[in-house]
Nucleic acid binder design. Structure first.
Length: 273
DNA sequence: ATGCTACCCTGGCAGC
DNA sequence: TGCTGCCAGGGTAGCA
C-alpha cells in the first residue's frame, strides 16, 4: 500500500479538491469493506466536508452538519485508490464505494485486493477517533529525538520490524523502512540499537518521508493520487526493489532477505548491525 | 509482553 | 497460449 507519503499525497489532493463540498449520497457497493454499522452511513448524507486529515496510513474525512461531526476513516490497504471523478464518470472494476458531492463530482474508492477499509466515528473533542487507536503510534514527522529514542531503545526485535509496528510509529511500511535504514547505515536486522544510531535513524526517516511527499509518493504498481497521477519517488529508491543491483554508495550488490514475513532490501557493506 | 505465522484478496509476471 | 507458482506497498488473530 500506500504508506505515509502516498496517504499524505491523497489527503492533500482531497483537501484541495473537495473541502467545502456537501455530500449528497454515499453508495456502499461492497459492504465487506465497511467496518461497523453500515446503516449509520445514511446520516452522512447532507453533511459538509470541512477537512481532510491523515493519521499514520489512515485518511480522516471530517464531515459536519451543524449539530453533528463525524470522521469517515479510510485505510487504503495495499491497493486502495481514492479518485476524484467528474459527474457521470464510468466506474472502474473494484469500485467499492462512491461519494457524490454537490458540484456533481464523485469520489470513488476502489481497491482490487480488498485489504482497504472504511469506518465511521463521531469526532472526539480533539485528536483522532478511537477507531484509530489500533494504530496509535507516534507520527514519524512529529516525534522529537528523545521520544524517538525512548520508543525504540532496548527493543529486542529487529529494528525493521519495530519500525513497521504501527503501535510504535505509524506510517512507515516496507518501502520507507528499507529506504530509511539504508540512509541511516543501519542493518534491518539490528537489535537493541544504540542511542546515537537511533538519533541518526530518526533524521533519515524524516529526510526520506519529506522527499517522498515532495515527489508525490512512490508508484510501484497500483498507487495513484486522488487526481489519478502517479508519484515519482520510486525512481529515487536506493535499495527497495533493487535486489542484485549495485548499491548507490559502494556499488556492491543489494541483498534481499525475509524479515517479519516481508522482503527487506539492504546493502550488507554500508548497513551495520 | 513480545514476536512469529497464517491468512485475508486480486493481479501481474516468470517459467514451463 | 495456457497453466502454475510466486510475489506484492497492509493489518490482525492466534499461537508460542
Amino acid at each position: 500500500m500506500p504508506e505515509l507519503p502516498e496517504v499524505e499525497t491523497v489527503a492533500r489532493g482531497l483537501r484541495q479538491a473537495l473541502v467545502g463540498r456537501r455530500l449528497l449520497a454515499l453508495e456502499l457497493r461492497r459492504a465487506s469493506i465497511f467496518k461497523g454499522d453500515a446503516a449509520a452511513l445514511g446520516a452522512m448524507e447532507g453533511t459538509t466536508l470541512t477537512g481532510v486529515a491523515r493519521g499514520g496510513k489512515y485518511l480522516v474525512l471530517e464531515l459536519h452538519d451543524g449539530d453533528h461531526r463525524w470522521q469517515l476513516l479510510i485505510h487504503l490497504g495495499m491497493t486502495g485508490q481514492l479518485l476524484v471523478q467528474p459527474a457521470g464518470a464510468p466506474r472502474q472494476p473494484h469500485t467499492h464505494a462512491v461519494l457524490a458531492w454537490d458540484d456533481g463530482r464523485e469520489l470513488h474508492f476502489r481497491d482490487p485486493r480488498r485489504f482497504g477499509r472504511m469506518a465511521l466515528a463521531p469526532e472526539p473533542a480533539h485528536g483522532f477517533a478511537p477507531e484509530l487507536g489500533v494504530a496509535a503510534g507516534a507520527e514519524p514527522l512529529a516525534i522529537g529525538p528523545e521520544a524517538f529514542v525512548e520508543l525504540f531503545r532496548g527493543r529486542q526485535a529487529p529494528i525493521k520490524n519495530a519500525l513497521m509496528n504501527q503501535k510504535l510509529l505509524r506510517g512507515l511500511g516496507n518501502i520507507y523502512a528499507d529506504e530509511s535504514l539504508f540512509r541511516a547505515g543501519l542493518d534491518p536486522r539490528a537489535r537493541a540499537v544504540s542511542r546515537a544510531r537511533l538519533l541518526r535513524l530518526r533524521l533519515a526517516i524524516r529526510a526520506v518521508l519529506r522527499e517522498a511527499i515532495a515527489a508525490g509518493g512512490s508508484s510501484i504498481s497500483d498507487y495513484v493520487g486522488s487526481d489519478g497521477e502517479p508519484g515519482w519517488f520510486h525512481l529515487r529508491h536506493r535499495v527497495y526493489g533493487r535486489t542484485g543491483q549495485p548499491c548507490p554508495r559502494c556499488r556492491r550488490a543489494i541483498h534481499r532477505i525475509v524479515l517479519a514475513g516481508r522482503s527487506a532490501h539492504f546493502c550488507p557493506a554500508c548497513q551495520k548491525k
